[in-house]
Design a protein around this nucleic acid. Sequence first.
DNA 1: CATGACGCTAATGTTGACATTCGGACAATC
DNA 2: GATTGTCCGAATGTCAACATTAGCGTCATG
Lengths: 229, 229
Amino acid sequence: MRSRVQPDPPAFGRASRRGLADESADRIREAILAGEVPPGGPLREVELAAALGVSRGSVREGLWILEREGLVRSAWHRGTSVIDITPEDVREVYAVRAALDRLAAITARETATENHLAELDALVAAMAAEIAGTPAGARLVALDIAFHDAVYTAAANRRLTEAWRAVRSQVHLFQLRRVALGFAHYRARVVDEHRELAALLRSGDRDTVARTAEEHVNSAHRGLLADLP
Amino acid sequence: MRSRVQPDPPAFGRASRRGLADESADRIREAILAGEVPPGGPLREVELAAALGVSRGSVREGLWILEREGLVRSAWHRGTSVIDITPEDVREVYAVRAALDRLAAITARETATENHLAELDALVAAMAAEIAGTPAGARLVALDIAFHDAVYTAAANRRLTEAWRAVRSQVHLFQLRRVALGFAHYRARVVDEHRELAALLRSGDRDTVARTAEEHVNSAHRGLLADLP
DNA sequence: CATGACGCTAATGTTGACATTCGGACAATC
DNA sequence: GATTGTCCGAATGTCAACATTAGCGTCATG
């Protein structure tokens, strides 16, 4: 190995320079999750292009990314708009998520390294800290999502991660809505449920892990449906 | 209910006019599945635009569709290319597919109408007919995929169908490869396995349907891995 | 001979202009 | 009065030119 002058190696798998399309997608996603565009609201290409200071083509490509994430929907010559949150949509998303989480948990149980497991513990601790202080719903939801991101990362299946990405933002949006409607129920359960999951990934038998992962999603599902009109 | 004069209502959900991007995607996908572009082979935008007689922008958008299907992969300023078929890729795709098929089967068992079930029977019959004659691998695989399309349609979950679409073309490509390598094994099992699945969707208990659907995918997985280098 | 810098080329990334389509307002018709 | 036909504006779909980048051969250099 060659001696180093710099204190730390890059360690990043290529700085992954991104194009304007990715940047645009990030900014628009942010705006949607911040509630600046209501569910069902239109996303006009010219408006966005002007607001972001890029060309329509780049915005267009950014919207494709968001469509792949299921956050927006577009139709021929009728433009792009944010998805709404009907009970039917919620049912669909959580059904798929349950199946994916089940596979992710089963797989991660076998493939997770000690680093991965430590990461999960750290995230649970962060949730607990958030609740102990003056809890902000949005931050708590972000940690929740991050936890599941970590599980998918540990499972190390690119196609599975890709499938998760296709529902991830929708789950994020739904959970945000859930927190906005009734915070107490969510706050009371998050930490314990995730702690249990993390523990089972360390040392649980396959069936228990599978059932718990599914039940975790169903719990979130019920919690949201109960508060929704 | 109001009396009708017309024998049947239109029932068409809009003729769904498509743009050049979709057409381009279709033609390119066709070319890939026909083997005209080898796994790992490059897909140059200018070439394709010239060949299809459309602008680069449309081709670019078409390639995005194929990327969403997982059939091609692209990187910043490094272009788009067809995926290869490594054992690792096969493992990933079939693991995800097993999870999705499991959910689709469980759901379809409850939501399928008589029409859906009849469609499944018809497809099984078509497979049997194909084998009885002079069987062509490509046609048999197409029927196989169509069968599973029908199951997903019966499950009536747009997100689930979307997730299936993200692996569908890859499965198609893999099965095509499988048939090209060793036809006998596949031919011997297809009809029976699908007939069993169709029967269970009519009248099987939940657990049996789930396990059979998973096992069906695993069987295909093993069959391919055995023949692969 | 190995190594690193330099520059070229072929491809993609980005842009603004032009063509097409959708949905609604309004008027004509039965 | 409801339906059908026509027009209009606004938005998206499409295109071809320009800017940027990665890969690679070449060359000087230790």
